[in-house]
């Protein structure tokens, strides 16, 4: 879903750039509360994994493909503020080194994938986590729902932006319908990958999964507690 240079008008690109900068600024503050000496190595790894996974396009229907956006996955693994920063690093490297997503569209892409994708995914995850049994195994299905909803949400925001401020006139309802339609299918792939990765990490190191921590039981053996 990487928006290239030239899709949105210059004022619209400036506006999304301002929104992205504000969001990243907030994330730089918020991530300090999420990062500690155990989670910061994971944050770098999550950014690298999201970059790698975004290269793996899977077919979704005749003649089209999708790839993981990774916002919901990153939010569940390292927390939503840190996830916004992870996606920002991925998108900046893609724009500057790979010409994947325009440099003038970097703000737009951060808004779509680093803010909308991350926070819709995180919000849905938290809502589903609340209603599922309070055990670590509930993290993966909740993360799947987050992934599922995050993709059409980001697609809808792009469609609204393009319908209002695109450089080619296209009826708003047409572009919204087309974008959301195909991205519901891609969201299914996002849901599968997000659920599989979260369940794998929860199986090995549930304590490292930011979104699973409220689901962990208190340590049975007091000596296992790490002093704060």
């Amino acid at each position: 879903m990487h928006v290239p240079d030239g899709f949105l008008s210059l004022p619209a690109s400036l506006a999304t750039g301002v929104v992205a900068a504000a969001g990243v600024g907030l994330a730089l503050r918020g991530a300090r509360r999420e990062l500690d000496e155990r989670t910061s190595p994971l944050a770098g790894l999550v950014a690298a994994f999201v970059f790698a996974a975004q290269m793996l396009n899977f077919p979704v229907a005749a003649g089209t493909s999708g790839h993981l956006l990774g916002g919901a996955l990153a939010a569940v693994l390292v927390g939503p503020w840190t996830a916004t920063l992870c996606l920002t690093v991925v998108l900046a490297v893609q724009a500057l080194l790979f010409a994947d997503g325009g440099v003038t569209a970097l703000g737009t892409n951060i808004v779509l994938m680093g803010l909308v994708g991350v926070w819709v995914g995180w919000g849905a995850f938290v809502a589903v986590r609340r209603v599922l049994p309070q055990r670590p195994a509930s993290a993966a299905p909740a993360a799947s729902v987050g992934g599922l909803l995050s993709v059409p949400a980001a697609a809808a925001v792009f469609a609204l932006l393009f319908g209002v401020a695109g450089t080619v006139p296209v009826p708003l309802d047409v572009v919204v319908g087309a974008m959301v339609g195909v991205h519901v299918l891609i969201g299914l792939g996002e849901a599968v990958i997000t659920g599989l990765v979260v369940s794998a990490v929860v199986a090995v190191r549930p304590d490292l999964v930011y979104g699973a921590r409220p689901l962990l039981q208190r340590p049975a053996v007091p000596s296992e507690r790490v002093p704060a």
Partner: peptide, 19 residues
């Protein structure tokens, strides 16, 4: 294959907007 966004832009005829 083109990804979701590329597919939509080709189908709706605004892929040429990409600079």
């Amino acid at each position: 294959s083109p990804d979701g966004l590329e597919w939509v832009t080709e189908r709706l005829g605004f892929s040429a907007a990409a600079a």
